[in-house]
């Protein structure tokens, strides 16, 4: 049981149902990659690209651009 300080923030409802509920069976215990064959795995090419320096230099520029986009749009408001 939980104590008052464990209370979720104001407005927490009873177990919900409805449009935003993502239904999967409740109560999972230990899941291993063997017992979860549905898990998506990356291809060897995807794994290779993750540490392939020329490609990552390009990604470095792109990711920075995306992050600065988020930061400066926010900044423009204050």
């Amino acid at each position: 049981m939980t104590t008052p300080n464990d209370d979720p923030p104001a407005g927490t409802p009873a177990p919900p149902a409805g449009a935003r509920t993502r239904a999967r069976p409740a109560g999972s215990a230990l899941v291993t990659s063997q017992t979860a064959p549905y898990v998506t795995r990356p291809t060897r090419w995807t794994v290779f690209l993750r540490t392939f320096v020329p490609w990552q230099l390009w990604r470095f520029a792109r990711i920075n651009a995306k992050m600065f986009g988020i930061i400066f749009r926010d900044r423009a408001r204050h």
Binding site: V31, S33, A36, V39, R41
Partner: peptide, 14 residues
């Protein structure tokens, strides 16, 4: 899930 499976990390949710 994909990253955990790839790294051989098991999990307990909920």
């Amino acid at each position: 899930e994909s990253l955990f499976a790839e790294r051989g990390i098991n999990w307990i949710t909920r």
